[in-house]
Computed example of a mutant assay.
Amino acid sequence: MTAPDVVVLDYGSGNLRSAVRAVERAGASVTLTGDFDAALEADGLVVPGVGAYAACMAGLREVKGDRIIGRRLAGGRPVLGICVGMQVLFARGVEHGVETAGCAEWPGTVDRLQADVVPHMGWNTVEVPSGSPLFAGIEDERFYFVHSYGVRDWELVTNDRTAAPLVTWAEHGGDRFVAAVENGPLSATQFHPEKSGDAGAKLLKNWVESLQR
Score class of each variant (00 low, 15 high):
residue 1 M to S: 14
residue 7 V to E: 06
residue 8 V to Y: 00
residue 10 D to H: 01
residue 11 Y to I: 08
residue 15 N to Q: 02
residue 17 R to Q: 14
residue 17 R to G: 13
residue 18 S to E: 10
residue 20 V to I: 11
residue 28 A to I: 02
residue 30 V to W: 09
residue 31 T to S: 14
residue 31 T to N: 04
residue 40 L to S: 13
residue 41 E to G: 07
residue 41 E to F: 04
residue 42 A to H: 01
residue 44 G to A: 05
residue 44 G to M: 06
residue 45 L to A: 06
residue 49 G to N: 01
residue 50 V to I: 14
residue 54 A to V: 13
residue 55 A to P: 00
residue 57 M to D: 09
residue 57 M to N: 10
residue 57 M to A: 08
residue 60 L to P: 03
residue 64 K to Y: 09
residue 67 R to C: 05
residue 68 I to N: 10
residue 69 I to H: 01
residue 69 I to D: 00
residue 75 G to N: 15
residue 77 R to Q: 00
residue 79 V to L: 07
residue 80 L to N: 12
residue 85 G to P: 14
residue 86 M to G: 09
residue 94 V to D: 07
residue 98 V to G: 01
residue 98 V to N: 04
residue 99 E to N: 09
residue 100 T to P: 05
residue 101 A to L: 15
residue 105 E to I: 14
residue 110 V to H: 00
residue 111 D to R: 15
residue 114 Q to G: 08
residue 118 V to G: 13
residue 119 P to A: 01
residue 123 W to L: 12
residue 124 N to C: 03
residue 124 N to P: 05
residue 126 V to D: 02
residue 128 V to R: 10
residue 131 G to K: 07
residue 132 S to Q: 12
residue 132 S to F: 12
residue 136 A to R: 14
residue 136 A to C: 11
residue 138 I to D: 01
residue 142 R to G: 05
residue 146 V to N: 02
residue 149 Y to K: 11
residue 149 Y to M: 14
residue 151 V to C: 13
residue 151 V to F: 08
residue 155 E to M: 14
residue 156 L to V: 12
residue 168 T to A: 09
residue 170 A to K: 05
residue 173 G to D: 13
residue 176 R to M: 06
residue 190 Q to H: 03
residue 197 G to M: 06
residue 199 A to T: 11
residue 202 K to L: 04
residue 205 K to F: 04
residue 210 S to M: 05
residue 211 L to P: 06
residue 211 L to D: 06
residue 212 Q to L: 07
